[in-house]
Design a protein around this nucleic acid. Structure first.
Lengths: 150, 150
DNA sequence: CCTCTTTCGGAAAGTTGCTTTCCCAATGAC
DNA sequence: GTCATTGGGAAAGCAACTTTCCGAAAGAGG
């Protein structure tokens, strides 16, 4: 009896982790290396990429990223130190610290998107563009828990 | 102007993380709760599920899980303490500690697979079984880095 | 105004899931 | 009988956070 499908039933979490690890080890690592960002790590890239052009508060950014404002504040502090973010006190509400991108930060975010996009192009080449488009659409549909119907 | 596609271009890592989080928060959490495993965490489930019926060494298990033998040994120690794994010194090579499942461990692994399978059934219902089958096949194809052609 | 509650944000410590470094004991190679 | 290799672990360190606690500012109600 020949065992053909040794990997057919690999658990779903392992499959997701496998692709996730490729993203960290390839495009995200390339971004850090090409910018010479020794003090920053892949998780910082996710934070900086969550800051939009108009700027937002730490609390808003934390909600967008699904983490606590304390954790978010730690990453913002590091990215401020590296010159990619800047914070300013909101004059209308002096509790709020508004986070925005510096010029360096904008360049970093642009490269993150570009490298991720190039990586996705490679994925599309591996299984074909049509199948990749379906794959991504289905993943997007499954990526957030469904609304519990009211 | 109506904004329709606010999430159309969510980054791929965020999509993967979204589904991964659902797995941790739903089936894996249910396994831990239904067994009353207060001291164990989702990551322990991945380790115990990596032990097959025939048993294997710590080093082999670590390679299978993609972690160091030290890290693997820590999880094995916890799972031995909880009664799901047992270790025995290999008489043929007294350096080797062979890890195997206890009866409790086998029941735990069975429930992990069952809960994960039920969760995947829910996913399939959300987008349709055919699309889910394609999605999973494509994910499996992309989950490991491609062989660099020789 | 003056309290009362809420909200923004952070400091400090703790937690999870590991890795790195260093080491010993057992094995295999010669 | 030496030498290098391998299996495994102890101890410390690290990454990516959370939890707890707190203060300062803002808004709500009288």
């Amino acid at each position: 009896m020949i065992v053909v499908n040794q990997v057919a039933d690999r658990p779903l979490p392992d499959l997701l982790a496998g692709l996730f690890d490729q993203i960290r080890e390839q495009p995200l690592r390339q971004v850090l290396e090409s910018h010479g960002l020794d003090g920053l790590r892949p998780s910082h890239l996710r934070v900086v990429a969550g800051v939009d052009e108009s700027g937002l508060s730490i609390t808003e950014l934390a909600q967008r990223l699904g983490m606590t404002k304390q954790g978010c504040g730690q990453f913002v502090a590091a990215l401020t130190g590296s010159g990619h973010l800047e914070v300013a006190t909101d004059p209308a509400d002096r509790r709020v610290r508004t986070v925005s991108l510096t010029r360096r930060g904008r360049a970093l975010v642009a490269e993150i998107h570009q490298r991720l996009s190039a990586f996705e192009d490679q994925l599309a080449r591996r299984i074909g563009p049509d199948r990749y488009a379906s794959f991504r659409a289905d993943l997007a549909a499954l990526s957030s828990a469904p609304d519990s119907d009211v």
